[in-house]
Amino acid sequence: MILAVDTSLGTAVALIDADGARRAEVGAADPLGHAEVIGDLLVDALQEAGDGDVTHVVAGMGPGPFTGLRIGIATARAFALGRGLPVIPVPSHFAAALTMLETETTPFAIVTDARRREVAITVFDGVDADGIPVVVAETVLVRAVDADAHLDGIRRIDVTTLSASDLARVGARALAAGRTLTGDEPLYMRHPDVTLPGAPKKVGT
């Protein structure tokens, strides 16, 4: 079985068989509170999946609000560490794209909230020979009000929850094809929000 964990939007946990069949899928839509729910969701998913060993852990790498995003990655990595399993990092938008491909014609843009009045956009068009959604425009952050102009007629699909089963399937297909979809660094898309200190402020006398 392959376990997938994603906290880029809500909290999503799923297990699939090696052939892609869903064994368990649980989640919480709340875009906050990931740390509170992740443990119980993990237990619930494992229980629902029943017998069988987990062989790989897929981690949803974002984009997403940093604080929440990191929780799922930390959980996925620690779970993998506990059982000596490999971690497969997968960009979260791939999961949404795979879900949408079942019903929607491409090309389309997966659009998610990036906070600070910005959205994250990735444009997909069909799947490749490995069954992995094809990215035709890499993920970018755009001001929410500029998103439509940016997309210039490409259909936008706004996503607020995603399927961890589909995240697991993308991971399984990448694994089967010997491909790496993203690195170990979360898709932060922004630098840490800091400014270098200037001269100390005057306090006056």
């Binding site: 740390a35 443990g39 506990g82």
Partner: peptide, 9 residues
């Protein structure tokens, strides 16, 4: 997050 992942694992 890490502690929960590890403990459950």
């Amino acid at each position: 997050g890490a502690a929960k992942g590890l403990a459950v694992s």
